[in-house]
Computed example of a mutant assay.
Amino acid sequence: MTSFENLSNLEVNKSGLQQGERVALPENRLYFRKGKVGDLENHFTDEMNEKIDKLIDEKLGHTGLVLK
């Protein structure tokens, strides 16, 4: 259900409208991006990166999961 192919084929992700809706949602580009490695630098400030790193450490630090 959450595969890229399935999500990209949903009407709301094609037109910005859910079935039966008449009011458009914000543009999809505000929610989706290509997700290229290293592209985060073009979207996050240093402060945002620090906050995300801290949050990941707080939430996942106890799991032993190592993110590089």
Rank of each mutant, 00 (worst) to 15 (best):
residue 1 M to D: 08
residue 1 M to L: 02
residue 2 T to G: 04
residue 3 S to P: 00
residue 3 S to N: 03
residue 3 S to V: 00
residue 3 S to Y: 07
residue 3 S to D: 05
residue 3 S to Q: 07
residue 4 F to G: 05
residue 6 N to R: 03
residue 6 N to S: 04
residue 7 L to A: 01
residue 7 L to F: 01
residue 8 S to L: 05
residue 8 S to C: 06
residue 8 S to A: 05
residue 9 N to Q: 14
residue 9 N to W: 03
residue 9 N to L: 05
residue 9 N to T: 02
residue 10 L to V: 00
residue 10 L to H: 01
residue 11 E to H: 04
residue 11 E to L: 06
residue 12 V to Q: 01
residue 12 V to L: 05
residue 13 N to F: 03
residue 13 N to W: 03
residue 13 N to C: 02
residue 14 K to Q: 12
residue 14 K to G: 00
residue 14 K to N: 05
residue 15 S to I: 02
residue 15 S to E: 03
residue 16 G to E: 07
residue 17 L to P: 01
residue 17 L to Y: 15
residue 17 L to H: 07
residue 17 L to G: 02
residue 18 Q to I: 01
residue 18 Q to D: 14
residue 18 Q to Y: 13
residue 19 Q to W: 07
residue 19 Q to L: 09
residue 20 G to K: 00
residue 20 G to Q: 00
residue 21 E to M: 05
residue 21 E to W: 11
residue 22 R to H: 13
residue 23 V to A: 08
residue 23 V to G: 01
residue 24 A to H: 11
residue 24 A to W: 06
residue 24 A to Y: 04
residue 25 L to I: 05
residue 25 L to N: 08
residue 28 N to D: 02
residue 28 N to V: 03
residue 28 N to K: 14
residue 29 R to W: 00
residue 30 L to I: 03
residue 30 L to K: 12
residue 31 Y to D: 05
residue 32 F to P: 04
residue 32 F to L: 10
residue 32 F to H: 06
residue 33 R to F: 10
residue 33 R to M: 13
residue 33 R to C: 10
residue 33 R to V: 06
residue 34 K to C: 15
residue 34 K to G: 15
residue 35 G to P: 03
residue 35 G to A: 13
residue 35 G to C: 11
residue 35 G to S: 12
residue 36 K to G: 15
residue 36 K to D: 15
residue 36 K to L: 15
residue 37 V to I: 13
residue 37 V to P: 08
residue 37 V to E: 14
residue 38 G to W: 14
residue 38 G to A: 15
residue 39 D to L: 15
residue 39 D to W: 14
residue 39 D to K: 15
residue 40 L to A: 11
residue 40 L to P: 01
residue 41 E to Y: 10
residue 41 E to H: 13
residue 41 E to T: 14
residue 41 E to G: 10
residue 41 E to I: 14
residue 43 H to C: 07
residue 45 T to I: 09
residue 45 T to N: 00
residue 45 T to G: 01
residue 45 T to D: 10
residue 46 D to E: 09
residue 47 E to L: 03
residue 48 M to Q: 12
residue 48 M to C: 07
residue 48 M to F: 11
residue 48 M to S: 06
residue 49 N to K: 09
residue 49 N to C: 13
residue 49 N to H: 11
residue 49 N to Q: 09
residue 49 N to E: 14
residue 50 E to A: 08
residue 51 K to H: 04
residue 51 K to M: 10
residue 52 I to L: 13
residue 53 D to N: 11
residue 53 D to Y: 13
residue 53 D to S: 14
residue 54 K to F: 04
residue 54 K to D: 08
residue 54 K to S: 05
residue 54 K to Q: 10
residue 55 L to K: 04
residue 55 L to N: 12
residue 55 L to P: 08
residue 57 D to C: 08
residue 57 D to R: 13
residue 58 E to T: 01
residue 58 E to D: 06
residue 60 L to Q: 12
residue 60 L to S: 11
residue 60 L to C: 11
residue 60 L to R: 11
residue 61 G to E: 02
residue 62 H to P: 00
residue 63 T to W: 11
residue 64 G to R: 01
residue 65 L to T: 13
residue 65 L to Q: 10
residue 65 L to A: 12
residue 65 L to S: 09
residue 66 V to Y: 12
residue 66 V to L: 02
residue 66 V to I: 04
residue 67 L to A: 04
residue 68 K to M: 10
residue 68 K to N: 14
residue 68 K to P: 10
